[in-house]
């Protein structure tokens, strides 16, 4: 279990050194997107249109924050369950997405896409939403404001604490961790 500090956008060599179970402190730009935003991104790709942000080396955070109070950068902002983005993620990975932050299991297609195109799935602590908000230094809605909490936001983060769940070698922390502690 190693610890790394990484800055986005991520490069192949960043992804290659990460193994399931490693702790990573991410800094730089991270984009937010949930179900509705993913659907729109994939629709744009299928129509051959330009995306609202550059996917090359990008990291997407699956989050729908609470509204900020006056004077706050962002409200509470913990991860949402990732499987809902599984139908869309491989298409984005194929086009340069290098990291995803969420919680919960991914399907085979996403894990395969991470192997094939060198991408990584990070787990953040679900429910640690007030703590994670502290790592977010700025937030700006860059697309789909009408989606409210589901709009795409550009976040500037500093030392966002995440754990590598699926690395680019096909390892899965959920499976390995459970196997280690399971009792018959």
């Amino acid at each position: 279990m190693a610890e790394y500090k990484l800055r986005t956008p991520l490069r192949n060599e960043d992804v290659e050194k990460l193994k399931a179970g490693d702790i990573v402190y991410l800094s730089g730009v991270v984009y937010t997107a949930r179900d509705a935003a993913h659907k729109r991104l994939v629709d744009l790709i299928n129509e051959g249109k330009e995306l609202p942000f550059d996917l090359e080396g990008a990291v997407i955070y699956y989050v729908g924050p609470t509204p900020p109070k006056p004077g706050e950068v962002i409200g509470s902002a913990g991860p949402t369950t990732s499987y809902r983005m599984d139908p869309y993620a491989p298409i984005l990975i194929e086009r340069g997405l290098k990291g995803m932050i969420g919680k919960g299991k991914r399907n085979k297609e996403v894990i395969e896409a991470c192997k094939k195109h060198k991408a990584v799935y990070f787990g953040a602590v679900g429910g640690a939403a007030a703590l994670i908000a502290k790592a977010i230094k700025s937030a700006e809605v860059i697309a789909y404001p009408e989606l409210g909490p589901e709009a795409i936001r550009k976040l500037e983060v500093e030392d966002f604490p995440v754990v590598v769940v699926n690395d680019c070698y096909g390892n899965d922390l959920y499976e390995e961790g459970r196997k280690k502690w399971e009792q018959q």
């Binding site: 409200g75 949402t80 961790g177």
Partner: peptide, 26 residues
């Protein structure tokens, strides 16, 4: 690793309480 997660969960509760900030965004 689970212990580290539990620590984050407890730290989160402290921040939420102090700032009256939602424990979870959901």
């Amino acid at each position: 690793v689970s212990k580290a997660v539990l620590k984050q969960i407890l730290d989160n509760a402290k921040i939420a309480e102090e700032e009256w900030k939602p424990l979870c965004q959901d």
